[in-house]
Design a protein around this nucleic acid. Structure first.
Length: 594
DNA sequence: GATGGGCTT
């Protein structure tokens, strides 16, 4: 039975969700005038740049940055803020005198693609005036780079060498609304740095909502407040500027009654879209591989049962552990007369963008990590998403033309029950790595640190206990010498760093570093629906009686003997990308540990 | 017999 959605404008009274800044769905007329037709013309890069929504705020942004210590920019995707603002700053002279403009991103891929886009717009070679740094890859030229894109994790590491980040004149923290651990630590540290360096300017860029709490965070100072309107001191009160995006209008449909099984509901919704709606690809958000496989299975069964309805559907799964070749399928253009259905995890919410999506089906759930500091156990649980996520998901339907989003929950639920933003990662994770990093930066009063979102004190205490038991912290909760400092230097989980340091005395460093590298990446095995049996057999070929760790060693040996061959990985159900990653990790750890 | 959302240094 197909799901029942009510259509906007029909009998049921429409509760507008704009109260909380539902701007995501409705961009002013500007978008229809400027994007669809002219965007595909042969405009020069210069005029393309001028057509971005952010362009008309150029003067305002430069003025605010000049006069305020912190500027918060609320902008939807497609406003052009990430690529344009660093260029405006450079044009206004913020990179003069050897200073550098930094722009951080939570993800490596975003850093690379934004950097190359900006280099192209400025018509310079990537790695010169415009460069980027991500782990294992530094494409900058210290003598020439004026605009530098980097992951927030890399900037955090840079603070270890240069605690005041002296070479930067402006630091733009992008995607701050995602509230990843590194972004939050970075924000806390930048606030501190700012007190010592009044000439440093910060730009915090966030997709929606949290502008107010972010502004409060940068406004309130625990200690001495500087003079506010002094001529040469920038204003401490953050400026907040909102920039509209370029998304198309997305019509939201809610279910009338709550659904009991969101996988089934997904399938019937997809089928009725396919049956009733004009051409356009469908993007479905489910929680994980299990759900996704079940939905695909069910779709196949329905297709078999009613050939008429489901002919012309191309159904593709999408999740991060899917082999690269299969992931790439979702980017292939949809053949004429066909309709692509991508059934995805959260990966399509932030990390990748699919062109051609016109319909989004949102289950309302995602898997989220939670940490219980009492039991010291991390859990992955299916939990309801936030309004912010729901808006982000819906926005994925409006990239090429007006679209529709089908939410598998009631409007009443969305309005009254759904929390407006998710819980910051900081408040639902282990903090061992985070604490050792702050200690390495000389921040002794960890419990008194000024966070954008305070983590639970129990989690902090547990992290301190773990570090103490590893011998990384002493009785005064200071880093021990040399073990504590060495462990902080190694960019891995402190438990693993300690294992590496101890292996030195036991004469098994080489083996332990290999194991450490493998434990530090997501998985060396490929994943997928039909390969479970083959995967188990492959694992058996390397299995060691001593356990998984020695099995890992065998796998790595095999990989080396194959001459680091990708075919060998494929044959043995191993993730080639992961193995390459391990090699880089080995290099960097070996480098640090002599 | 039960099991990996997504990132990152």
């Amino acid at each position: 039975m197909p799901q029942q959605f009510w259509k906007p404008g029909a009998d049921k009274p429409r509760i507008l969700e704009d109260e909380e800044g539902g701007v995501v769905f409705f961009a002013p007329s500007l978008s229809s005038a400027s994007s669809s037709s002219s965007r595909f013309g042969y405009a020069s890069i210069g005029s393309q740049r001028q057509r971005l929504p952010v362009y008309k705020y150029r003067t305002a942004i430069l003025y605010l940055v000049e006069t305020h210590a912190t500027t918060i920019i609320v902008g939807e995707t497609g406003s052009g803020k990430t690529t344009q603002i660093p260029q405006y700053l450079k044009e206004a002279g913020w990179a003069d005198g050897g200073r550098v403009i930094a722009c951080t991103q939570p993800r490596r891929l975003a850093v690379q693609s934004v950097a190359s886009r900006v280099a192209e717009e400025m018509d310079v070679k990537l790695g010169e005036e415009v460069g980027y740094t991500i782990r294992f890859e530094d494409v900058t030229n210290p003598a020439a780079t004026m605009i530098k894109f980097l992951t927030d994790g890399v900037l955090l590491r840079e603070i270890m060498d240069d605690p005041l980040l002296t070479k930067y004149s402006v630091i733009m923290v992008d995607e701050a609304h995602e509230r990843s651990i590194s972004t939050d630590i970075l924000l806390g540290l930048l606030k501190k740095i700012q007190r010592r360096r009044p000439e440093l300017r910060l730009i915090i860029s966030s997709a929606t909502i949290e502008a107010k709490s972010m502004s409060d965070f940068f406004q309130t100072s625990k200690k001495h407040r500087g003079p506010e309107d002094h001529e040469f001191v920038p204003r401490k009160v953050p400026a907040v500027l909102s920039v509209e995006g370029r998304g198309f209008n997305v019509q939201i449909h809610y279910v009338v009654e709550p659904v009991s099984d969101y996988v089934r509901a997904t399938v019937s919704t997809v089928l009725s879209i396919h049956d009733q709606e004009p051409a356009g690809d469908i993007l479905v958000f489910l929680t994980g591989q299990d759900d996704i496989d079940a939905a695909i299975q069910l779709l196949a069964e329905e297709a078999h049962a009613s050939r008429k309805i489901s002919s012309g559907l191309i159904v593709l799964p999408l999740y991060s552990s899917l082999p690269r070749a299969e992931q790439d399928l979702v980017f292939s253009p949809t053949p004429r007369g066909k309709r692509k259905v991508v059934i995805s995890t959260n990966i399509a919410e932030t990390s990748l963008t699919l062109e051609g999506v016109v319909y989004v089906v949102d289950s309302g759930f995602s898997k989220q990590q939670f940490y219980n500091p009492i039991s010291d156990i991390e859990n992955l649980v299916v939990a309801p998403i936030s309004k912010a996520s729901a808006r982000q998901r819906a926005g994925r339907a409006g990239r090429v033309r007006p679209g529709k989003c089908y939410r598998l929950y009631t409007e009443e639920y969305f309005v009254n029950e759904m929390s407006s933003v998710g819980i910051p990662e900081m408040q639902r994770s282990k903090l061992v790595s985070c604490v050792i990093q702050l200690k390495a930066l000389g921040i002794d009063n960890i419990l008194g640190f000024d966070w954008p979102a305070s983590p639970p004190p129990e989690a902090m205490i547990r992290a301190l206990e773990v570090l103490y038991s590893l011998g990384v912290l002493d009785d005064d909760a200071k880093l021990t010498s040399p073990v504590g400092f060495q462990a902080a230097e190694i960019p891995l989980d402190p438990m693993i760093s300690k294992m590496i340091l101890s292996s030195n005395q036991l004469g098994c460093s080489e083996e332990i570093i290999t194991i450490a590298a493998i434990l530090s990446i997501q998985s060396i095995w490929v994943s997928g629906k039909g390969v479970q049996k083959e995967l188990d057999e492959a694992k058996l070929r390397f299995a060691a009686a001593e356990g998984d760790h020695v099995t890992f060693l065998n796998v790595y040996k095999g990989f080396l003997q194959s001459g680091k061959s990708s075919q060998w990985c494929h044959k043995n159900y191993m993730n080639y990308q992961a193995m390459v990653c391990i090699c880089s990790l080995l290099l960097s750890v070996n480098f640090r540990c002599g």
